[in-house]
Design a protein around this nucleic acid. Sequence first.
DNA 1: GATGAATGAGGATTCATTCAT
DNA 2: TATGAATGAATCCTCATTCAT
Lengths: 200, 200, 200, 200
Amino acid sequence: MSPRPDVSEQRKDQILAAATKVFTKHGFSNARMDDIVAESGLSKGALYWYFDSKDAIIVSILDQIFDYETAHVHEILEIEDSAQAKLEVFVDTTIRDIEKIKPLMPILFDFWSLSVRKKTINQAIKRYYQNFLDLIEPIIEQGIEQGEFRAVEVKGTAVALGAIYEGTILFYLYFSDTIDIEKQFKSNLDLVLEGLLQNP
Amino acid sequence: MSPRPDVSEQRKDQILAAATKVFTKHGFSNARMDDIVAESGLSKGALYWYFDSKDAIIVSILDQIFDYETAHVHEILEIEDSAQAKLEVFVDTTIRDIEKIKPLMPILFDFWSLSVRKKTINQAIKRYYQNFLDLIEPIIEQGIEQGEFRAVEVKGTAVALGAIYEGTILFYLYFSDTIDIEKQFKSNLDLVLEGLLQNP
Amino acid sequence: MSPRPDVSEQRKDQILAAATKVFTKHGFSNARMDDIVAESGLSKGALYWYFDSKDAIIVSILDQIFDYETAHVHEILEIEDSAQAKLEVFVDTTIRDIEKIKPLMPILFDFWSLSVRKKTINQAIKRYYQNFLDLIEPIIEQGIEQGEFRAVEVKGTAVALGAIYEGTILFYLYFSDTIDIEKQFKSNLDLVLEGLLQNP
Amino acid sequence: MSPRPDVSEQRKDQILAAATKVFTKHGFSNARMDDIVAESGLSKGALYWYFDSKDAIIVSILDQIFDYETAHVHEILEIEDSAQAKLEVFVDTTIRDIEKIKPLMPILFDFWSLSVRKKTINQAIKRYYQNFLDLIEPIIEQGIEQGEFRAVEVKGTAVALGAIYEGTILFYLYFSDTIDIEKQFKSNLDLVLEGLLQNP
DNA sequence: GATGAATGAGGATTCATTCAT
DNA sequence: TATGAATGAATCCTCATTCAT
């Protein structure tokens, strides 16, 4: 009488995957629980067994996405190299994962929208961006300390980098036909590095 | 004898103002027509007299916002000056209007979200950003031709500027307590100009 | 200063004509006053000036139609001839006017439907059919008295004739492509006359 | 363990019965879904679980009625007897079921009305009447072939019989106080048979 | 007489959630 | 655990009617 294996994690992932698909297609508000039920292949009762509500699913997706993104961003922390090299690695990994990031943007839009009204969502997003800044700032500081970069204002520069990162993905969504995202990110980096680096 | 004065434009503005308020507070999907009715001080029938549907109101708001933003952006076209001076004016007018732009962001989030599914919305947004690029590119070209700027790739640089603009406003929404938006925009401009300007 | 000519009858007819068209197309319930306004070329206020309500328009149309039909039926009363000849004239005038009657059937359907619930409508229809019977019965009586027809039961035969009349138009509505209405009415008459006439 | 018994057919019937009642009372357009909900004893959600819309309910009722009527008409096909006998059986079964048919007439009115605008409804009715004609025609042919009937035009006679059938029920609705429906149908039959039968 | 903007009760439909099995 | 039928509050939109001008 071996106990049944715990399938709950598996089920939850199944539901979140289905929900992500459905939310991407319809947006949070227009997505129906029945859509998620259909997409997941489970029953309505099962959905409510694993998640208390539609909101609970949404929040779980938020966690999932930001966990992934944060992990992604943290990769560069591992690198032992010049500040410039770190930024280059950051751009490279972003380019590498852009096709995974892109389909999540519709959901991100909804999160941005929700964050206006839901404090939890707002805080989660803020935490995520803070995380991003917390990572970038030391790199800039390192660059300045080691004489690579000019003595720029650190916080403002970090925000500028975050802004250009999010903004570029946004523009790419509307101009994916005319923007070569790889070139674009490299071009962004050139522009910024040119502004950051000490004149030789 | 005297024909009733035509109040239809007034009424439409009244409705759009109310709708903007309500949409900002609740988001498109969660906003109820009854909310707009209450906020506008008109009746439900009046709303539907001037607008065919909730969607029609949303689209009208989109037009209104983008008309405003486009006009705003075009101000710099008038200036006869160096490319650098034009960019500086752009930053100045943005700073000047930031408090008007900020409360519209929640609505912009919903538009971004909607644009994934509604082609008309998508096209309107794309047109707006294209407009932005069409304005910025000649400035960069002017800067290069007149020897102010390095020979950067024009299109990519324009996108970078658009990205940093939208992205900064986004970050400002989440960090309005720690970001001094005026300084931030100026800092952005410094960074970019430093990257663009010929080394003397 | 001659007084303005009274256009109210003209206006009423204009409205009833428009209403008939609209009711034919949409049915009573689905027809909107705005449709009638548009079709009539008048204003909404004008409509309500001449008719108190949608119902009032409907009732007026009922009167109009039945007046017409009754007049139509009464034509045969004028004829001085054998009973058989009178029935033949009745068939002929029906055939002659069938294209005018046919487009009124959709409205008649609605009147039948309404008559279930509205006593006034019910009575109007009943009166109309009674009228029909009052006309046909003397003809049958005449036929019997003068030895043309067998000694059938008068009332029942009149109802049978009314039934076959209404029923034929009904079938014609669904089979106008395969029924030659002229032949059909003549065939009906033959059948009935064959049943009524004394065997020679 | 035991699976819940499938009550969906039962529920559908429950809803259709309630809807028939409500439609009879108010007509299609004026009947409210809430009326059907109340009459059925179910909830609004349940109604929409089993039927997509008010229209779907209407169509289902159409099917139900015509299935019943068609079955009813087909009874005579079984009989092995003279053409005259078959027509007599038809009249007898009609008389037998008249009290079941009568309350459905208000609904039939609405179907006739709807059929003007809705092709599906039109086709269903047409199919039903065609069915009727397809049944009657062979009987008339049989009568002619076997020398019972005169050599009448078959199709036209079938239409005449259908017409007198529908028309009689119609008149009966308005004159149920003065028409003895049993006598009336027998009288109709006599009249027609007298017209059809060979003179001895 | 005539206009047409404005009213607001009414009604079809949706969908997150529940719960008996 | 899992099912899916059932619930009913919520919400968009319609349209007959009114009335200030």
